[in-house]
Design a protein around this nucleic acid. Structure first.
Lengths: 331, 331
DNA sequence: TTGAAAGCGCTAACAG
DNA sequence: CTGTTAGCGCTTTCAA
């Protein structure tokens, strides 16, 4: 359709191989011809066809990014870190929103394979073994953002969820709380599982018993948080005086339920979240939460992928970042 | 590298042209051969190389999406609408975050052209004429989300910003406010300009004079809102009793400044925003705001693009959606 | 119904 | 330093 190498070759009067060489900075081109070619290319507004380049070079300078919910501010923050790091190295990013649905994720993954992405960054929407096995079979280098620390030999970047949760719950305990609820998100997500473990450990280590009625999980969103909290609050003889929720969105929902039930925060019920999304710091919210360096995580994730892409490092890496508890008004 | 048509052709014992035909649903293939081929392809886990397909078919089933700030929840909501509509029709989406920077946007646009995207959905980060001219020259079909209604013949989808702003300000006026400030975002953005116009119109139509000290703009983010408001509040003899801000993030920032100055909302100062991002509805926030059907806008935007892509409709369309004022606690 | 072959736009030997 | 040519994986005539 549009302008090709040949067009500009014809115009300058050289073979199109020469044009290719000149434009791609090949050293063995006459200075003058190169100059002429570059000028002409500019003048004609030539843009190389990356699809054709990709076909021959067998690389597309493209990565796939799969995230579960772009609507949760946590993920755009990461996505931005990834994208900016990527673009700096000349990579473009396919964004795929999996909606925590592993079938959608699978579909996307196949498309990305077909589109010949050079690499993959993903936070798997499910950690069921068959799904993980499917992902593992995929040939492009991958890095996981949030991925269970099992015996696997993948590269992932994650924060220490267990520790973060532990700190959060311990903080609550130190404040004198004993009946602490856990409100979680997607059951099959690593983050959820680990945060639950952290919660349980903190409870047990402090000699507190875990009431299963106070441990519930559903989606990682505000509505879930709201309904879970509401239900807990309405159950007979509810003793809850504090809640740890597996992410900020859940906390926000829970707070709404708490207020609707006419309890005061933090006097009657204290709450702490996880992620430290931007809105957690609003003066009206002042959510105590476990903070993650989101933007950096994105950058690091891409850098790790880039190392694989360029073959600098072949061995897998496990990058575990430190969470930090930010104490604000809700606890 | 990986599995190609030839591999599966060899295995089945036919020419690879036949395999291509069988797999792409070409009618003139023997039922039996087709079955064998499909089975074999499945068994071997064949995935067509979309890059190669793109080269010959001259289409990539890929679109570019350029948005100014993925960190503003307004845009992810739109992006999600676009992406889901796109994937349904078999398109993948390149996500590009321009950061309200037209040079970055330009760079992205060139990359997208090189990557041979079939279409473009963008909310331009600047409406300077040279930038717009640059965009206009781009060959792929485009649809704009937010684009000034000038003499241009583009397709765009937008809400009636002027009207929304007008309603917001009128609402404030009816509540008895006279000294109403305007806090805006990016100067060069259409949305900003139109919302400013709506503000001015409402003021003038109601016989209120506009105090230029009360009209300020900067970035479309929380920090800007905070500092603009703070400055206004600290200026001598500030009479402001209400503010209309050009988006919710700005409003959130302004609210913080108002509270820090020890004013009550809405008693001392009322405020209304624009966008109705998810967090505007939090019980703690209760931001009165002008709502936009974000997810739908995304869907509609893709559908409009799809019509162009498939040649169903060639003429440009201007889709203008209705805003709706949602009155909550801050006014 | 199938195979052979051209060609999409480009890069990378290989000659010259 | 430059031109010729093969070929990346695929679709699509054109013949058979």
């Amino acid at each position: 359709m549009s302008l090709t190498l040949k067009d500009i070759a014809k115009e300058v009067g050289v073979s199109y191989a020469t044009v290719s060489r000149a434009l791609s900075g090949h050293p063995e081109v006459n200075k003058n011809t190169r100059k002429k070619i570059i000028e002409m290319a500019e003048e004609m507004g030539y843009q190389p066809n990356a699809i054709a380049q990709g076909l021959v070079k067998n690389e597309t300078k493209t990565i796939g990014l799969l995230i579960p919910d772009i609507t949760n501010p946590f993920f755009p923050a990461i996505a931005r870190g990834i994208e900016e790091a990527a673009v700096e190295k000349g990579y473009s990013t396919f964004l795929c929103n999996t909606n925590w649905n592993k079938n959608i994720e699978k579909k996307y993954l196949n498309v990305l394979i077909q589109k010949q992405v050079d690499g993959l960054i993903l936070t798997p929407s499910s950690e069921s073994t068959d799904h993980l096995k499917f992902i593992k079979k995929l040939t492009p280098p991958k890095v996981f953002v949030n991925k269970i620390i099992d015996n696997s030999s993948d590269t992932f970047i994650i924060i220490d969820n267990k520790k973060g949760a532990y700190q959060a719950v311990e903080h609550l305990i130190k404040k004198g709380h004993e009946n602490i609820a856990f409100i979680g998100g997607e059951k099959s997500s690593t983050a959820n599982k680990e945060r639950l473990t952290g919660y349980k450990n903190a409870m047990q280590d402090n000699g507190l018993k875990i009431n299963n009625d106070y441990v519930k999980m559903k989606g990682f969103n505000r509505t879930s948080g709201y309904f879970i909290m509401k239900e807990m609050l309405m159950s007979e003889g509810c003793q809850i005086t504090a809640v740890f929720s597996a992410n900020d969105l859940l906390a926000l929902g829970a707070i709404q339920a708490i207020k609707e039930a006419n309890f005061n925060i933090p006097e009657d019920i204290a709450i702490v979240g996880f992620d430290d999304i931007e809105f957690a710091s609003l003066p009206e919210i002042q959510l105590t939460t476990v903070s993650q360096p989101k933007y950096q995580m994105g950058q690091i994730a891409f850098d790790a992928l880039y190392e694989k892409l360029t073959g600098q490092k072949t061995k897998e890496r496990k990058i575990i970042l430190e969470p930090s508890l930010i104490i604000r008004g809700t606890s």
